[in-house]
């Protein structure tokens, strides 16, 4: 496996509330022999602002991001949504070499594992029934899987990484890739629809007896976890990095 110098990008809400996801990502990449650097002055990709319409107010944050992450072979993050934002919406910055390289080299963890490191089998043991939540920005923005709307060959990078795990049972959903309703600030400006979407998503996983819902985006899982805890449900959420890091490499 080739070794790269990786800038580890830990999204703001993961840094603040889900450090275990950041730790799992870091450990996994190190186990795969990568040189991982965490630029410790990093903050956020600015998406919460831009999705609310405050792209202009986000420019300072974008610039700060580029300053932290320039010069790495790759920038890897355990978030499809944040990776999509950097790649796609940093287009409003002046496209200097740094900006272009940062945009091109930012990868979501699963796609980095499958596309760049070309990992085949991580030798994981995870004897549980697991439902995949293919978060929208990763799915339709980064094309981490085929979207159900498109008439194309079916694939899923998330599934490919998990299906070889020992003991795992990946469940099928009635609606394979419906949005969970998080949507960034949508979740607070349209709370009723957002929560209803989340409840329906969880119910689909429950109908198929999933023990865990996993995703490459903790933000969707944070939203669903909030509903699960409010309703006292048994089903659990887990970031895919936490499963993949249980390997025996």
């Amino acid at each position: 496996m080739k070794q790269y110098r990786i800038g580890l990008f830990i999204p703001c809400y993961i840094d603040m509330f889900y450090p275990q996801v950041g730790i799992a990502t870091l450990e996994l990449l190190q186990k795969l022999g990568q040189e991982v650097v965490y630029p410790d002055k990093q903050t956020c990709c600015g998406q919460p602002l831009a999705n609310s319409g405050a792209e202009k107010e986000a420019i300072a944050t974008y610039k700060h991001f580029v300053a932290q992450f320039r010069g790495f072979d790759y920038i890897v993050t355990p978030s499809g949504s944040c990776a999509y934002h950097v790649r796609h919406h940093f287009d409003i910055l002046e496209q200097t070499d740094d900006v272009r390289q940062v945009r091109e080299n930012t990868f979501e963890l699963c796609e980095f594992l499958t596309d760049i490191l070309q990992v085949e089998d991580l030798k994981i043991k995870f004897p549980h029934r697991v439902g995949l939540h293919q978060s929208c920005h990763g799915l339709r923005g980064l094309k981490l899987a085929s979207a159900s709307e498109l008439i194309e060959q079916r694939y899923s990078k998330l599934r490919r990484l998990l299906e070889k795990a020992e003991g795992i049972e990946l469940i099928e959903l009635d609606r394979p890739d419906e949005c969970c309703g998080f949507g960034g600030t949508f979740s607070i400006f349209e709370p009723d629809v957002s929560v209803k979407m989340g409840r329906d998503r969880i119910a689909d996983h429950e109908r198929h007896h999933a023990e865990y819902i996993t995703s490459y985006d903790m933000s969707c899982l944070m939203h669903m976890e909030g509903i699960i805890r409010r309703q006292g449900k048994a089903i659990k959420v887990i970031h895919v990095a936490e499963i993949l890091n249980r390997n025996s490499l």
Partner: peptide, 17 residues
Amino acid sequence: TWGVGRELPQAPQQSFK
């Protein structure tokens, strides 16, 4: 409004940073 139908995330001991 997050609290309309959801719990806030639990606070970990410390941040990743």
